[in-house]
């Protein structure tokens, strides 16, 4: 009884704070401050047509580096946890066959899903999309392949190498930005200028960085889902 009353008190105080915030909110009518700078000079300094991509990869690239680190840490901790909790790994696991519809449909859909994922992260600077969305789509395709064929094992070495090489290459491009460009992870390097605005080979190093980020995120999420799938015990 006391517990319910205290919960209601906490929720009522939150509601009071939010009501005050909502009543005193004036919607903006002009872009001010840093957003005005990004809107005016984004196309000429960075060369990307998608301004959100320009902000994520070029102007605030440190935050993206931090996010990649957090995802890597999450994948590592989940592998650690779900590996030690397999108490009987010597048991032979025989999987029942999956249904016919799943097997046939997955053979048709998986190449299309991979193609769509790669398209989304290669064209991240022209249309809505980018590395994180493309990586999530690729991971969905991998999960469909695992579910349709439970005896298939994903080669662990391939995933580890793809993930590590992508991460190291992003940092190397960033350090090249300090030597040859304007700062860490700058999009224009000395010998690799901005291309023509609006084509695939434009915006300097942004497509390269975002493609590597897409591969890394796809490999990490596939690893997490593979660990979850392998920890199911069937007989």
């Amino acid at each position: 009884m006391l517990r319910n009353f205290l919960i209601a008190l906490v929720l009522a105080s939150f509601g009071f704070i939010f009501l005050n915030l909502y009543n005193s909110y004036e919607p903006k009518t002009e872009l001010t401050g840093i957003a005005a700078h990004y809107a005016e000079n984004g196309a000429s300094e960075v060369g990307a047509a998608n301004l959100v991509t320009a902000v994520v990869v070029s102007y605030r690239s440190f935050d993206t580096l931090g996010e990649i680190t957090i995802l890597f840490l999450t994948a590592a901790i989940i592998s650690f946890f779900l590996k030690l909790s397999n108490e009987d790994e010597n048991k032979v696991i025989i999987h029942k066959g999956t249904s016919e519809i799943l097997k046939t449909a997955s053979q048709l859909l998986i190449p299309l899903i991979f193609l769509f994922g790669v398209y989304v992260f290669i064209n991240g600077h022209l249309t809505p999309g980018g590395g994180f969305q493309g990586g999530a789509i690729i991971a969905s395709g991998v999960v469909l392949a695992i579910m349709a064929n439970p005896n298939m094992t994903i080669n662990h070495t391939v995933i580890v190498w793809v993930e590590s090489l992508s991460g190291v290459t992003v940092v190397i491009i960033g350090v090249l930005g300090i030597i040859l460009g304007g700062g860490f992870l700058d999009s224009t390097l000395d010998g690799y200028g901005l291309g023509e605005f609006g084509t695939v080979f434009s915006a300097g190093t942004i497509p390269v960085i975002y493609s590597l980020v897409g591969l890394k995120v796809g490999a990490e999420i596939s690893n997490i889902l593979n660990k979850y799938q392998k920890s199911q015990k069937e007989s």
Partner: peptide
């Protein structure tokens, strides 16, 4: 549109799967 694509792929697809 970027945020909508990310939320649909990650929040509604992969999270429910896990």
């Amino acid at each position: 549109p970027d945020v909508a694509m990310t939320e649909a792929a990650i929040g509604s697809g992969l999270s429910t799967l896990i």
